[in-house]
Amino acid sequence: MEWMAWTWPTAIFFIIIASTLTVFTVLAIKFPEAPRMGVLRIETTRGDRLFITLLGSAFINLAWLGVIGANQPFALIVCLLYAAAVFRWV
């Protein structure tokens, strides 16, 4: 594992991603849901909305870093708001 140059923050990052995926997989099996149409006019399931959230969050973080460049943790608050919006309306 040493060659992978692990650090605690990146390890925690991947653990969070992996557990989110696990939780959503279990949810999809236990409570299957029909796709629904949202503001983007495309059919999405919970998994799709998670993907949109994660990908969007990556860009929100990069934009924050590029434009504001300080107090990066606050970008996560924006991401949470974005996630809530995606799960509510997309």
Binding site: E2, W3, M4, A5, W6, T7, P9, T10, F13, F14
Partner: peptide, 20 residues
Amino acid sequence: IPLMTVVNYSVQDTFGNNQF
């Protein structure tokens, strides 16, 4: 796994010798 390694590299600096 290679992609995870890239993420690990992206937050570190190295001067070789596998020291980060």
